[in-house]
């Protein structure tokens, strides 16, 4: 799991929005084949951080190295082309369109007939069915509308799509936060499969148990700062929880709730 060179190295990243300091010097390394969990409470700067990583925001200060080279992306499409794919919680799939149309949205395979180029539905359907089977999703057919899939299955389709189109880094923005227990398990299993293919997964969540289930390393963000990165086995759920909440307050609160949070 410890490759020599990090795929992405982010050093002392700062991001200011006017007078608001969203990120105050965050450093993170992402290695291929690892699942790097980025934990933080709401407002901790998780979203800003991943948007910086995926090229949506430019850092105010700090360096980003992608495969050892200084990274500069003019827009998110460049990031996708370079192999950094973001799977958003809601904005990934179009419910009324078929799974195969969704899978190839923006990357439609083409087949030439005379001077015209047509959407190669046969190829798209075949690949979609194959990829879905690999991920353990049983489709009625490639023409099935995404709207009939469960939330977890949709996340899985989105992940499979990103990997199929050559993502080296997969940024998952709270993929499990709106899901039920079983669907969450499916998504976590998908993350595990993807990691084993050598893809680096950046898993954003505020659920410590989900993070511990698949994470190799854990970075906690709190109020725009990182409290360091811990390896699997070096840290307990309670410690992560405390770091996310900034320690004291939650401990008091948790006491009154009987330690259930």
């Amino acid at each position: 799991m410890t490759s020599s060179q990090p795929l992405i190295r982010m050093q002392n990243i700062e991001k200011h929005f006017g007078s608001v300091i969203a990120l105050a010097g965050v450093s993170v390394d992402i290695y291929p084949g690892e699942c790097h969990c980025l934990l933080g409470d709401n407002g901790a700067g998780k979203s800003t951080f991943i948007k910086t990583m995926s090229g949506v925001h430019k850092p105010t200060k700090g360096d980003i190295l992608f495969e050892g080279q200084p990274m500069y992306f003019a827009d998110p499409r460049d990031a996708i082309a370079a192999g950094i794919a973001t799977v958003h919680q809601h904005l990934a799939m179009i419910p009324l369109m078929s799974v195969s149309r969704n899978f190839f949205m923006g990357n439609e395979p083409l087949r030439k007939i005379g001077p015209f180029r047509f959407f190669d539905h046969d190829y798209a359907n075949r690949v979609t069915m194959e990829e879905m089977r690999k991920m353990g999703i049983n489709l009625r057919g490639p023409e099935q509308a995404v709207g009939t899939l469960s939330g977890g299955e949709r996340q899985t389709v989105a992940i499979a799509r990103a990997v199929h189109f050559g993502a080296k880094v997969l940024i998952l923005d709270e993929p499990t936060s709106a899901l039920g227990v079983r669907q969450t398990a499916n998504v976590l299993a998908t993350i595990d499969k993807v990691r084993k293919q050598g893809v680096a997964v950046v898993f954003i969540t505020h659920n410590v148990r989900h993070a511990l289930a698949v994470g190799d390393r854990f970075t906690v963000l709190n109020r725009g700062q990182t409290l360091g990165t811990a390896k699997r086995g070096e840290i307990s759920a309670e410690e992560l929880q405390d770091m996310m909440a900034g320690g004291q307050e939650l401990a008091t609160l948790e006491g009154s709730l009987g330690g259930t949070v």
């Binding site: 998110p76 499409r77 996708i80 973001t86 958003h88 904005l91 990934a92 799939m93 179009i94 419910p95 009324l96 369109m97 149309r101 190839f104 949205m105 923006g106 990357n107 439609e108 083409l110 180029r117 047509f118 959407f119």
Partner: peptide, 21 residues
């Protein structure tokens, strides 16, 4: 055609379509 897929995508969810390029 590819363009047809874009038409569906643009109307289905413009934001998701943009995210997919």
């Amino acid at each position: 055609t590819r363009f047809g897929n874009w038409i569906f995508a643009a109307g289905g969810d413009a934001e998701a379509a943009r995210n997919s390029g």
